[in-house]
Computed example of a mutant assay.
Amino acid sequence: MSEALPSGQSAPTVLRIVLGKRLKELRESRDIPLEDAARALSVSHLTIRRIENAQVSLKIPYVRELLRLYAVSDEEARDFTDMAERANEPGWWHNYKTALPDWFRAYVSLETAAEVIRVYEPHYMTGLLQTRDYARTVIRAGFPYEPEEDLERRVELRIRRQALLEKPDAPKLWVVLEEAALRREVGGPAVMRAQIERVMEVAADPRITLRILPLSAGAHSGTSGHMTYFRFHEQELQDIVYTEVGLTSAVYFDQRPDVVAHLEAYTRISRLAAELLPDTRTYLDHLRKEFNR
């Protein structure tokens, strides 16, 4: 198991992760030890490791000196430095940092850059598909003592994330929902009816696949809890899996055995849902009518 990304104020953009990995590949391809790279910058070898793991921002003088040490061409060095400057720019979510838990900041960066997102959600409607009223109720349950202004800031962040699905290059989104997540009445019948109608609307998008795992499935591979699987355009960035740990932390897996284990579990869950409940739209339509009271 590995925590692929740092949490907290330094949560990186995906570009910074990619550039850190490129710097590591350049160093290793030149057979330069961490200690020699650190000596060139007059820093500790731990600083080089943090740069390569995207745990600190890319200081441009450091980047230039490392590229010189790695004998990178002038043209390639200029391109790399330009990208490093862009990588240090805060993402759009930076304006919402007070509404983002430390351990969730990297998630928004990954979500924004992903080519494919696979979500398994056992408890609630997944955040990318929530209506405003549904989101407000769920967030209030998680933060019962939050001042109203701060609560609305969290709601606004969740709704802002959904703009991702409207982009021309929107990621492919695969969602497996537990039936319990749809039957748990959040905010009352009217809120639930509107939420189900919202899901039926977006599920018509060919880039979105929604499957529902009925209660009759019994024990299965996903009973350990929520997971999100990210795949990216950038070849340097391997697939990453996010899982929540309790109420106040999360783990980001990037080691291949961990990622493969989660993907295989997700695939089994998805196939089981398709077998047990192949007609998702009809089920949602019946459920919507149940909340018509």
Score class of each variant (00 low, 15 high):
Ser57Tyr: 09
Lys59His: 12
Val63Tyr: 05
Glu65Ala: 12
Glu65Cys: 06
Tyr70Ala: 00
Tyr70Gly: 00
Ala71Asn: 13
Val72Trp: 02
Glu75Thr: 11
Glu75Pro: 04
Glu76Leu: 14
Glu76Thr: 10
Arg78Tyr: 11
Arg78Cys: 08
Met83Asp: 14
Met83Arg: 12
Met83Phe: 07
Met83Ser: 13
Ala84Pro: 05
Arg86Lys: 13
Ala87Lys: 05
Glu89Thr: 12
Pro90Tyr: 11
Trp92Gln: 09
Trp92Leu: 08
Trp93Cys: 02
Trp93Val: 00
Asn95Met: 10
Asn95Lys: 14
Lys97Cys: 12
Pro101Leu: 11
Asp102Thr: 05
Trp103Thr: 02
Phe104Cys: 01
Tyr107Leu: 11
Glu111Trp: 02
Thr112Leu: 08
Pro122Glu: 02
Pro122Leu: 07
His123Thr: 13
Thr126Glu: 04
Gly127Glu: 06
Gly127Ile: 01
Leu128Phe: 08
Gln130Cys: 04
Thr131Arg: 09
Tyr134Leu: 01
Tyr134Asn: 02
Ala135Asp: 03
Ile139Pro: 00
Gly142Arg: 04
Pro144Met: 07
Tyr145Ile: 06
Glu146Trp: 07
Glu148Gln: 14
Leu151Val: 00
Leu151Ser: 00
Leu151Trp: 03
Arg153Met: 15
Leu157Asp: 05
Leu157Glu: 04
Ile159Val: 13
Arg160Ile: 05
Arg160Gln: 14
Arg161Met: 03
Arg161Ile: 00
